[in-house]
């Protein structure tokens, strides 16, 4: 089954890319944007078909490689 993971920067970590995107949006006329934070999105297909086991596996992957827990949070979504 397919599991997705979203990695985002923790709130108190500076995100200069997000800031620049926000400034650019502002310059383009999108005046109603309050903040932009950039993250990463992963689609992971696993052999496991049990949703809770599959999520657990991806959680392990997030902790050990995909996210650096000093600065990032992860969120796991079951997609299929």
């Amino acid at each position: 089954m397919k599991i997705s993971a979203i990695i985002t920067l923790k709130q108190d970590v500076l995100d200069p890319q997000g800031k620049v995107i926000h400034q650019t949006l502002d310059g383009m006329g999108f005046k109603d944007v309050k903040e932009v934070r950039q993250g990463k999105y992963f689609e992971i297909e696993v052999e496991e078909n049990d949703p809770s086991k599959a999520k657990k596996l991806v959680e392990d992957i997030c902790k050990k490689l995909l996210a650096n827990l000093v600065i990032e949070n992860y969120k796991i979504i079951e997609t299929q």
């Binding site: 970590v13 200069p16 890319q17 620049v20 000093v70």
Partner: peptide
């Protein structure tokens, strides 16, 4: 830092 041998992380330079 990624191996956990020293604390902290190295982020993108402040002014990109």
């Amino acid at each position: 830092v990624e191996a956990g041998l020293v604390p902290g992380v190295l982020l993108r330079n402040k002014y990109l």
